[in-house]
Structure formats: structure tokens, C-alpha cells
Write a protein that binds this DNA or RNA. Structure first.
Length: 202
DNA sequence: GTCATGATTCAA
DNA sequence: TGAATCATGACA
């Protein structure tokens, strides 16, 4: 039996809890995908690093869409970054998907990122959207459909994984929050964990 | 390690 | 009009 895609209920927990729980799950986009090995959480309220803190459009997006909606934007005019809207009693915000260990349709990803080693095809938030062929059209989509090609799928065998929490990357504000989550030892991370990283469960 | 790349949003 | 931005690849 095949596990179904997560539904939007999953994204009603607090953003850091969602981000941590996604590590080890499989992200699929039109048949391409891999195991999620790195995420970051952003809070819609009181988080200077979140778009909602300085962009009215982001606040409107949160108000006008349900939990589980894709929030996709262009960063530095070059890279699409893929986030999932989190909305529930514990708080609102986003989870940024930062890196995957490629598992599905590697050939399609190699075609889109020809210079990359296989491990590195999705080793970064911009690299993964490039490898998956994911762009602006995904923005605002409820991508958690009942479709085996696209969505987020719990691992078939949930083994114990070494989950680390670390500080977030590439931001200039609230850099102290340990809201970057990663799979220890993965070769597909965008960056190795810092010396401040702590193990969440062995 | 440095550096060029580059679109969109929002406030001034 | 311009400052800011959740990054990457090329090159030394």
C-alpha cells in the first residue's frame, strides 16, 4: 500500500514543528523529487526575517489562503524559492524547503542542472526549484493534491533519523533562532551544520 | 576566498 | 527612484 500525500491539516501545527517534522519525508513535483533533508521555519508574527514583517503582499497572502498553500517567490531576481503556508492555532508562517536528497526522475533533474553532481542537484533552495522545474506557476497552488506525482509523502519506513536544529541561513535579522532543521550526515545539504547545531532526537 | 548576476516589492 | 532581498556559479 502506498502512503497518501500529507493533507493541509499537517500545516496547522507551529511553523518550527512543521519544518522539523518534514525532514525525512519525500517531496514530489510532477514526478520529480527527493527526501527532504533541510528546511527552515518563518513566523508571520514577530519574525523580522519573514516576508510578512516587511511586505504587505505577504501578509495578504497569509490571510487569503489556507494552510498548505505554496508560497513561491523570486529571490535576488534569479532563484525561485518554495515555501508552504502554515496556519493554525499555534501560529502562522512559512516553511522554506531548502534541500532534497534526489530520489525520483534523476534524469529530468540532470537535464535541468547539467553541471551538478547527483547529490547536489537539489542542495539549496534555488537549486531544488531549478532541478524540479518549479517556478512562478506554483505560487498560490494547493499542491497537496491527492495525486502521486505531486505533494509531500511520509517515508514508507519511518526509521529514527538524526535531526539537527541550527540557525537560519542567508538572513540578516533574527539570525539567532534555531529554526533551520536538517538531516545529520546528508550529502545533499546546502551548507554543513554550524558548531551551534543541536540534536533534537537521536 | 571574491564577485557579478538580476526581478520584484514597497516606501520615499 | 532606489534600496533591500530566505542564492548561485564562475573564477582566482
Amino acid at each position: 500500500m502506498r502512503s497518501p500525500s500529507l493533507n493541509s491539516d499537517f500545516f496547522t501545527a507551529a511553523p518550527p514543528a512543521c519544518a522539523a517534522a518534514l525532514i525525512g519525508m519525500e517531496f514530489r513535483w510532477h514526478g520529480c523529487g527527493g527526501i527532504i533533508v533541510e528546511t527552515e521555519a518563518y513566523a508571520a508574527v514577530d519574525d523580522p526575517a519573514c516576508h510578512t514583517f516587511f511586505r504587505k503582499g505577504a501578509r495578504d497572502f497569509v490571510n487569503q489562503h489556507p494552510a498548505g498553500t505554496a508560497y513561491v517567490y523570486l529571490n535576488y531576481g534569479i532563484h525561485w524559492l518554495f515555501n508552504v503556508l502554515v496556519k493554525g492555532p499555534e501560529g502562522e508562517g512559512f516553511v522554506l524547503i531548502r534541500a532534497l536528497q534526489p530520489t525520483l526522475d534523476l534524469d529530468a533533474m540532470r537535464q535541468r542542472r547539467p553541471a551538478s553532481r547527483d547529490d547536489q542537484l537539489c542542495a539549496g533552495p534555488g537549486r531544488l526549484t531549478r532541478a524540479l522545474g518549479l517556478g512562478r506557476e506554483a505560487h498560490g497552488q494547493g499542491f497537496l493534491r491527492a495525486c502521486p506525482q505531486t505533494g509531500i509523502f511520509p517515508g514508507e519506513s519511518q526509521q529514527s533519523i538524526a535531526l539537527l536544529a541550527d540557525h537560519r541561513i542567508g538572513i540578516s535579522k533574527a539570525i539567532d533562532r534555531p529554526w533551520r532543521f536538517l538531516l545529520a550526515g546528508s550529502r545533499s545539504l546546502s551548507k554543513a551544520p554550524s558548531h551551534k547545531a543541536v540534536t533534537l532526537h537521536p
